[in-house]
Simulated assay, not measured.
Amino acid sequence: MTRVVVVTGTDTGVGKTIASAAIAARAVADGQRVLVVKPVQTGVGGTEPDPHDIATVADLSGAEVLELVALDEPLAPDTAARRQGVAIPTVREHVARIRAELPSYDLVVVEGAGGLLVRLDAEGGTLLDIARDLTFALMRADGSPVEVVVVCRAGLGTLNHTELTTTALRAVQVEPAGLVIGAWPAEPGVAETCNRTDLTRLTGVPVLAVVPAGAGSLAPEEFRAAAPAWFG
């Protein structure tokens, strides 16, 4: 039975890619067959393109990767596609593609773009829809588990943003499996220290991992060796 982990975030830039790499690296170290899927990547065109998140994940984790859509401008996917004049798959098509990959792997990690409600297609579909549709489709099909992990910040504002995200998941009957603090500072202040406890107290969701700030700059072998220790 394939395990599916959907990685979302409370916002853009919170550390989803590095968290996805850490989840994948931990499973690869356990000898699992791992695929990380990025349904939509934006910002990869122009004179100063962003790196493909999926390339970062592959380099750090050693997992297999799959990017379904790449768009030039660093905008929400539906906006970037409209401005670029291209048609992009619907969320339903993304779900079907992900499901087709499941039999070949022990773990499939699905990394979102931006926050939970960022629009991934021209019909208003979001990562929330992917998480919901995968959860209920796999539950009906064979009971394969889907775990939704929310990557959040350590500092001020994270409690509100994380509660909003977990509330949105529960509104569609998807219980978040855990939180990952995406960039834990080397010298945390009072806010960070309190938030580390309060995130679980206020959301009812456990903190599964705390990723140190700058982890994405580690050499791949250092990243893979260190990643398992970030999980509680």
Rank of each mutant, 00 (worst) to 15 (best):
V91K: 02
P89R: 02
G155C: 04
Q173L: 13
G143W: 13
L134Y: 07
L179V: 10
P206R: 09
G124V: 01
E93S: 14
T158R: 06
V151Q: 04
G112L: 12
A191C: 13
D129C: 11
T158N: 10
E101G: 01
L202G: 01
T203L: 11
V174S: 11
G124T: 03
S217R: 15
T162D: 00
A113T: 06
L116Q: 07
P185L: 04
T162N: 08
E93A: 14
A154S: 15
E147I: 04
R99K: 13
A141C: 00
P145C: 00
T167S: 15
L202S: 06
G182K: 12
T197S: 14
P145E: 14
G178V: 01
A96T: 13
P206D: 06
N160H: 14
T135Q: 09
T165K: 08
Q173R: 15
V172T: 02
L199K: 01
L102R: 07
I98T: 04
L164M: 12
L120F: 08
V149F: 08
V205S: 05
E163L: 15
G125T: 01
T203G: 09
R140G: 07
R99F: 00
T167W: 12
V110I: 15
L199N: 10
T200Q: 13
V205D: 02
A96E: 15
V172I: 09
R153S: 14
R153E: 11
D198K: 08
G216R: 09
E187W: 08
G182E: 07
V210E: 11
V150P: 11
A137F: 03
A177L: 01
R99L: 13
L128R: 13
A100E: 14
A177W: 05
A122Y: 00
L199H: 03
H94M: 14
T167N: 07
A131V: 02
V151D: 00
L179T: 05
P185C: 11
G143R: 10
V190A: 11
E123N: 09
G189F: 05
A137M: 00
G115N: 07
V118Y: 04
R196H: 12
P89W: 05
A131F: 03
